[in-house]
Design a protein around this nucleic acid. Structure first.
Length: 107
RNA sequence: CGAGCGGGCUACGCGGUCGCGGCGUACCUCUGAGUACGAUGAGGAAAGUCCGGGCAUCGCAGGGCAGGACGCCUGAUAACGUCAGGUGAAGGCGACUUUAAGGACAGUGCAACAGAAAUAAACCGCCGCGCUUUUGCGCGGUAAGGAUGGAAAGGCGAGGUAAGAGCUCACCGACGGGACGGUAACGCCCCGUGCCAUGUAAACCCCGUCCGAUGCAAGUUUGGGCUUCGUUCACAUAGGGCUGCCCGUCCGAACGGAGCCGUGAAUAACGCUUGAGCUUAUCGGUGACGGUAAGCCUAGAUAAAUGACCGCGCUCGACAGAACCCGGCUUACAGGCUUGUCUCGGAUC
RNA sequence: CGAGGCGUAGCGCAGUUUGGUAGCGCGCUUGGUUCGGGACCAAGAGGUCGUGGGUUCAAAUCCCGUCGCCUCGA
């Protein structure tokens, strides 16, 4: 399935204001119920140079994409935490944990 | 064999599954977009933004001052602060490397401390004369020696002298003139001048050359109509425009606020990738580079696309991600491959 | 994309224009004063001048490169 992206600044700041937060070891999510599932990844300058930032975005995006099946539709922000090392396995594990805890799966 | 020097190339590869950007074709359609297939999709530095240009706009912008950049010569180039070939200088046994390398009789400034003296001369010395004659004092000559300093009046040897001194001579250096070679920087040879005068222009400056400003968030198109108010100006003055200023020149209109309806508004499209383009061959040139022919089309996103997992191989993979586009410079970088009538040392024939 | 500024002792700043000695305040150490502490007085320590080159006899200062931080404009 295709994951829609969350683009507009208004929408993002809206989610940040009114959304619900949940934290894990490697990532924080902020979400708000919506008509369709739309996601955005936030990686600022503090994470390093562009190659490093791109790497984080790709890992996180991929982890979200492969685990977003059967989710309740919502607008969601994915915010990684600053760390020495980033791996796909850790992002995937933490995202699954968060989705379960917040009961975002429909079934 | 060892140690070097110079140049060039490359930047993990292959296969499978899932996924992303734009493109083409086909299909469906609720006109929002979607589905399938196909080919395609980051770099040598994409980086830093240090230079140069294209392109765009500012009413095509002429002159002067100010300001900035550059600075051996010749060439290459669209242009350059870049590159190539040379000259001089410095370093290295050498291959070779480095070089902001115009001007200090146009002027101004600075040279701390030390030292007698820093652009001007005599502290200790040395020598002569006079006095005294144990020491020494005075006058004069001198710049060889000592001491200070980054720098002390060309260097070194010989002659010469009371002691000395380019005072004289040879060699080297400097300056001036001439011949020859070279497009030139300059080289080399000959002759002359005993050489009245330091360093610093990455101090101000002088000379020569060049520079209009702003930058793709440039800019173009679409999206709007009505009412009302205000400011400046149309003889001159004044006002306005692309830079700090002045002169010249151009303009007849330009700008701003409020309300109503309408409204996607850091929005959509264009700019946006065919270009001083790339590859191969060949010709000219020492070379940078240029000419000709054939072939090729090779990212174009806009919160921003290259990833994840599995398998195999090896040397176990560095620095690092296009954002208008080119030419350079600078900086970062695991390694691997390759090359030379190249250099030095050792051994052997 | 473009423009500008800063980096000096543990902290906050002078010194850079015009090159020769790095200084001020707070803090620190030692001594004095006090019954003791504070305040005060006296003495002292402490700086690769962000970093790598260059110019110069000599560089915190002049020039070039580079690193980090901050601010501003579109």
């Amino acid at each position: 399935m295709r994951v829609l992206r969350l683009k507009k600044k208004k929408e993002i700041s809206g989610v940040l204001k009114t959304g619900r937060r949940a934290h894990a070891e490697s990532v924080t999510i902020v979400y708000f119920p919506a008509k369709e599932t739309r996601a955005a990844v936030c990686v600022g300058k503090k994470f390093g140079k562009s190659v490093r930032r791109n790497r984080i975005k790709r890992l996180l995006r991929e982890a979200f994409r492969t685990n977003a099946h059967g989710m309740k539709p919502c607008a969601i922000l994915l915010i990684p935490k600053v760390a020495e090392e980033y791996s796909y396995a850790r992002f995937e594990r933490d995202l699954r944990k968060l989705f379960k805890r917040e009961k975002l799966f429909e079934s």
